[in-house]
Amino acid sequence: MLDLGVVQYGAPDLSEPARPFSLPDERQAADTVVGQLLAAMERIRHVHDFSGKGLGVAAPQIEIRRSAAVVQPPGADPIVLLNPRITVASEEMDEKFEGCLSFFDVRGLVPRPLRITVETTTLEGQVVTTVYERGIARLVHHEIDHLDGLLYTARMRTGVAPIPVEEYRQTGRAWTYEQ
């Protein structure tokens, strides 16, 4: 992943909160960062298949300390997150294995809410509220954590450690949820 321009575990960019954009004043800067995130996502997609679970990239992962991320759910258009903030998280949680582009050789069992409400800012400066559920909620929450300076390992239960990708037996399979 380092060869694809993704900052790796231990880099300061991953442990510091990202700086929000002042929108619409910084519209051009935000638009540029989103373009860089989409380009990074395209480079990564050419090397690895993420069609089963989706893919996300946060600006700090490409050495940009700004509050922007892009999430590509399976079979859907990319979701752009500018200045995202989780305002509501369901008490109902589940635990699924997650990976991270910033330490790609391990997977971790991470509890996350099944439903989150997220406020983001448009390039025009309007605040938009969106509800995400299940797998998309997991992807969005993971990227927002990056913008807050957290890696998924901070969300894992005490005493549970990431496992090498070789031991992870569900690589490439979609997350499943009860209806």
Rank of each mutant, 00 (worst) to 15 (best):
T176V: 08
V7M: 03
I163L: 01
M1N: 11
E119Y: 04
L4W: 06
P60T: 02
L139A: 12
G10P: 14
R27D: 12
G149E: 04
A161F: 15
A11D: 15
T158P: 14
Y132M: 11
H141A: 09
A18L: 11
V118H: 04
E95T: 14
I136W: 00
V140F: 08
A68C: 04
P113H: 00
Q8S: 11
F103L: 09
E16W: 09
G52M: 12
H146D: 07
G135L: 10
T120W: 03
V165W: 14
A137R: 08
E92D: 15
V110R: 12
Q61A: 04
T32L: 07
A29E: 15
E92F: 08
S15D: 14
W175N: 02
E98Q: 10
R138T: 07
R65D: 07
A30Y: 12
L109W: 06
F104M: 11
P162M: 01
P84F: 04
T120P: 02
K96L: 13
R19Q: 15
M1V: 13
V160D: 09
R27E: 15
V7Q: 01
S67Y: 11
M1F: 13
T158D: 13
T117W: 08
P12Q: 02
P164G: 02
V57L: 07
H146V: 01
D13P: 01
A69W: 01
D77I: 00
V128K: 02
